[in-house]
């Protein structure tokens, strides 16, 4: 199986099982990865304390005392930190609550992708035979499904919800992780200590989860941290195309709202730029962390 088929540069390198056990820890040695982790911490704190940080209910329609809509306020005007939208919602509060959906989508999608991909890779790689054949044909099919169109179709059929993106990722994007991990397992399976465990009569389950799985975990984390970014970007695209969940405040729906209300023409940068920046920051953080993992996995890149 040609693992360099994968878009991730890290996957190109082979035969590195020996170095794998050095993984399974946060990539704290790399300053950029640490920066990425700090961004995560910042957004996680924002999401946790959203109720305290937000000044308004993000969906509430705001009025002036004489019952006019408090729309299109500039930052700072009338006490709205980042101003208000064309439909009279507080932008700062939306931004703050947006971090909740972003992290919710990003982290669940990452866990799903990493978990499913890892399980498939482990099972296929370790057991081989028809199990492997079936799982890898499934992966072939998943590779044949164009992802964004798939999410669009799925979102159109199901109730609009941010979980559609997570579901689509779980259904399709395990493929990359699955294939790479399978090839790692293939090479690990023949190693002496696994053979030893087998000779000693360890059960398959025990071998897989005690001896093999820990060695591939950093690889799962690598794909997981890329998936965070994918999920957030996908949610934003889906919202932009009008298939998002109108009841949930996310950075994607904020951008869609700003676009539909022509924030570009009115030069409402305070509305249009912050959600974009937040998306970029979180996604970049995912990349930086994944690069940190990559360097743990493939230290010769760093040398």
């Amino acid at each position: 199986m040609p693992e360099a088929m994968d878009a991730s540069p890290g996957a190109a390198a082979g035969g590195l099982a020996g170095r794998l056990w050095r993984g399974l820890r946060l990539p704290l040695g790399d300053p950029l990865a640490v920066f990425g982790l700090m961004i995560y911490v910042l957004f996680i704190l924002t999401a946790v304390f959203a109720d305290q940080l937000a000044t308004h209910d993000p969906t509430e329609i705001l009025y002036t005392p004489d019952y006019d809509l408090a729309a299109d306020r500039r930052p700072g005007e009338d006490g709205y930190i980042l101003g208000t939208t064309s439909l009279g919602r507080d932008i700062w509060s939306q931004l703050v609550y947006g971090s909740r959906s972003a992290l919710l989508i990003g982290l669940t999608a990452a866990v799903m992708v990493a978990l499913i991909g890892t399980l498939v890779g482990l099972v296929a790689g370790y057991f081989g035979g028809w199990v492997d054949a079936v799982l890898m044909r499934l992966a072939d099919i998943a590779f044949g499904i164009p992802f964004l169109p798939f999410v669009i179709v799925l979102s159109a059929f199901l109730e609009p919800s941010i979980w559609n993106v997570v579901l689509a990722m779980a259904l399709v994007l395990w493929r990359d992780t699955g294939r790479v991990i399978r090839s790692q397992v293939l090479s690990l399976r023949t190693r002496a200590y696994v053979e030893a465990a087998r000779v000693c009569g360890s059960s398959d389950l025990k071998i897989v989860f005690r001896h093999i799985a820990p060695n591939i975990l950093p690889l799962s984390f690598l794909y997981g941290s890329i998936a965070i970014g994918w999920a957030i970007l996908t949610e934003a695209s889906i919202s932009f195309l009008g298939f998002g969940d109108p009841d949930t405040i996310s950075w994607g729906t904020m951008l869609q709202d700003a676009y539909a209300s022509q924030a570009l023409s009115t030069r409402a940068f305070h509305w249009f730029v912050p959600p974009g920046l937040c998306i970029i920051l979180v996604v970049v953080a995912g990349f930086l962390v994944s690069r940190g993992y990559e360097e743990i996995l493939f230290p010769k890149l760093k040398e």
Binding site: L87, P160, S239, G242, G244, P246, D257, A260, S261
Partner: peptide, 11 residues
């Protein structure tokens, strides 16, 4: 209908 398609109606 959704805000994206029908902002006035949603509002």
């Amino acid at each position: 209908r959704p805000q994206a398609a029908q902002p006035s109606e949603f509002q």
